[in-house]
Design a protein around this nucleic acid. Structure first.
Length: 154
DNA sequence: GCCAACGTTGGC
DNA sequence: GCCAACGTTGGC
């Protein structure tokens, strides 16, 4: 299958593109929305490229690129009673939530802000613009390319 | 900090 | 299975 493109949101003060760069790789735990889970579990493939979006940021926007490095597997943080992502309805016998691993690819020279995305004629149909509250979402190859170019521009 | 959007829960 | 209440996301 051809490479696919995604956008994933992270609260900047929880886990930023700088944290991602420092770690090199990370597991994407904590997704607790069924649609987002289904995309990760059923659609994402190793090698897919992902726009790393800072939510709750000033300004909110795409801060860099990461790449899927491990296909979906159970999110074990849901099993840990002491973890903020604990969910009593998920257990190891029948996991409800899944995560993928992603590797750092690049941090943009400048964040491509949500305002810039909304203002761009080729980006107005993005799920990011059309729908609130979906933390994992598909992006077209064209949208991905446009945003990468904007982020690399000085 | 406010609050609109909207997904989830639970009573019936 | 409907839908009101509730909780969370996330921009502003």
């Amino acid at each position: 299958m051809a490479k696919q493109y995604w956008l994933m949101k992270s609260e900047e003060d929880v886990y930023s593109i700088r944290d991602m760069e420092r770690d090199g790789t990370t597991c994407w735990e904590g997704v607790r929305n069924y649609e987002a889970r289904n995309l990760m579990r059923d659609k994402m493939k190793v090698g897919d490229e992902v726009l790393f979006y800072h939510s709750n940021a000033k300004p909110p926007g795409v801060a860099g690129i990461v790449q899927v490095s491990k296909p979906a597997y159970p999110d074990h943080f849901a099993f840990d009673r002491k973890n903020p992502y604990f969910d009593p309805k998920s257990d190891p016998e029948n996991p409800r939530w899944f995560m993928v691993d992603v590797d750092f690819v690049e941090a943009f020279q400048e964040v491509v802000s949500l305002n810039d995305i909304k203002a761009h004629p080729d980006l107005g149909e993005m799920t990011l613009v059309k729908r609130a509250r979906l933390s994992v979402q598909p992006v077209t190859k064209k949208e991905f390319g446009v945003i990468r170019k904007m982020g690399r521009r000085r």
